[in-house]
Amino acid sequence: MSQAAIAERGYGPLDRVSDIFFVRPKLLTLVLLLPPLLWIGIVYVGSLFALLLQSFYSLDDYSGLVVHEFTLSTYAQLLEEANLQIIVRTVTMSALVTIGCVIIAFPIAYYAARYARGWTKAFFYLAVMMPLWSSYLVKVYAWKLILAKEGILTWLAKNLHLSWLLDGIMALPVIGGPSLSFSYIGTFLVFVYIWIPYMILPIQAALERVPSNYIEASADLGAEPRQTFWTVIFPLALPGIIAGSIFTFSLTLGDYIVPTIVGNSRLMIGQAVYTLQGTAGNIPLAAAFTVVPMAIMGVYLWIAKRMGAFDVL
């Protein structure tokens, strides 16, 4: 059959190449894989290694020039009080943001996975996808509008006669500030808002895989709905939560735009990296700083993989 068809068309160079691939499927895989692998390997991984390398250099304090000699002194600088504070502050913020995201995302994901049907299902999907994909900066900007001192939150508080509550919160040490857009509360809210969709989707995916007969079995065996939730549904949803937390945690760790636009003047890792490589010209310390989120995420991903979080991505 195939011989006849080829005979009709003639046997061109493309057919010859095609035959080689057919005989050696591994060669085809290699030919397909090589260009994208080279791109990611050279452009991305190559740059990463170049950066890593620079973290072992140091900056000469007097000349302000980078000394190209192997040293661990730059990493030692990370442990200085001020730099350590930046790291602790960023990790704490990332953890709190992740918890905030779980609390708001879970009911949405739960509803979408277990109760939404037909058009409500599509509605929930789009309602999550649209904020996920709409412009990052526009979302940050929206919160600048909301948190401004003359903005809608202050207006709401006034009209609900809750101004005392808002003022009281802003007067709190550490998390308070002159106004919401210059406080940790503001930074926290914007982060939670921006990353929530990244939490909803994996939780929903995990919940949708919970077989309904597990839940029936649990009920048949006499479990209260609350017991079923905590002993059956929640453990099965946990990989989804962890998968989502990879995003919320990693994205908060590295972000420098949000704390620059909404927040007080205390730096987070991203801002430190940005100022160090820019105005300060201290690439080695900036590089050492980026190793922190990389190391944290490396450990995080390893744990997540062990807990089965990658299966729901």
Binding site: L37, A287, T290
Partner: peptide
């Protein structure tokens, strides 16, 4: 490993991609 490699650019914070590319361009 390779499929993990392809996910890496969005799994790691954007600032890492940014600064490593910038320093590579400088070099």
């Amino acid at each position: 490993t390779i499929s993990l490699l392809f996910i890496l650019p969005i799994a790691l914070p954007g600032i890492i991609t940014g600064i490593s590319l910038r320093s590579a361009f400088d070099i």
